[in-house]
């Protein structure tokens, strides 16, 4: 979809999402976005085949490389396809496509370079341990990377051409989300936080590869390692 002649690409990094992926893609298409890129991160289920049937652009990592690496592949694909604005969102259906317009609006109006979707501005319906987990993540991100944001772990974000050209992340896994914050700080990009709705379903909460306590510890370790190595 082109809004004000802007080529907008929606990126979905996916890992074992065969059960919901068709619905997630259809929902995005229904709100008017046809440039959708799905990157399958070496899923062991039929995510790749199921996504292909929907007619969107699908790329596949032959081996699992993590959320950060997968999102970066989607961003690189969008660059090759001459995107003007990139929106990244989770492929498990927890993000509401109705919020996309809220994220891209400040970019179209050239009010900022990066828009961060935040679950914590209005955390209604969010489990308490998720709120706590995210607040700890924000604190660590601020301490290590120097920028305070209300949701450093959100995957629902939008980038202008300037931003996605400058931002270059190396983190393959969940540390990616915080690394983006570091890049925003490093390049002094203009950013805005927008409240987003999150739909915590039984499906999304039950996925084992989501950020848990041990994943969180690993993410912190990776963030520290990125700073000292």
């Amino acid at each position: 979809m082109e809004k004000q002649n802007k080529k907008i690409y929606i990126i979905l990094p996916a890992y074992n999402e065969e059960k919901v992926i068709t619905e997630v893609i259809t929902e995005i298409q229904k709100v008017g976005y046809q440039n959708i890129i799905l990157v399958d991160d070496g899923s062991s289920d039929q995510t790749f085949k199921v996504a292909k049937k929907t007619g969107v652009l699908v790329f596949r990592h032959k081996i699992n490389r993590g959320k950060g690496a997968t999102t970066k592949t989607g961003i690189e694909a969008s660059k090759l396809l001459s995107a003007d604005i990139i929106v990244t969102m989770d492929a498990d259906g927890q993000h509401n496509p109705q919020d996309i317009i809220k994220l891209i609006k400040p970019l179209i109006e050239n009010k900022c370079d990066v828009v961060l979707g935040s679950r914590l501005i209005n955390p209604k319906g969010m489990p308490w341990y998720k709120i706590l987990h995210n607040k700890i993540g924000n604190l660590i991100t601020w301490y290590l990377y120097g920028l305070w944001v209300t949701d450093s772990q959100s995957g629902f974000r939008a980038y202008s051409k300037k931003a996605f050209t400058l931002i270059n992340t190396l983190g393959d896994r969940y540390e990616y989300d915080s690394e983006v914050i570091h890049e925003v700080y490093k390049y002094k990009l203009r950013y805005k936080e927008i409240p987003i709705q999150v739909r915590y379903t039984k499906y999304s909460m039950g996925k084992i590869q989501k950020q848990g306590f041990f994943n969180g510890v690993q993410t912190v370790y990776k963030m520290i390692w990125n700073l000292i190595s």
Binding site: F59, H61, K62, R65, A69, D172
Partner: peptide, 18 residues
């Protein structure tokens, strides 16, 4: 090595459009 593997995986997955 991890970064190199990711880069190779990325290049391989995007070779069609590249």
């Amino acid at each position: 090595l991890e970064q190199n593997i990711s880069e190779l995986t990325r290049k391989d997955s995007l070779k069609e459009i590249s």
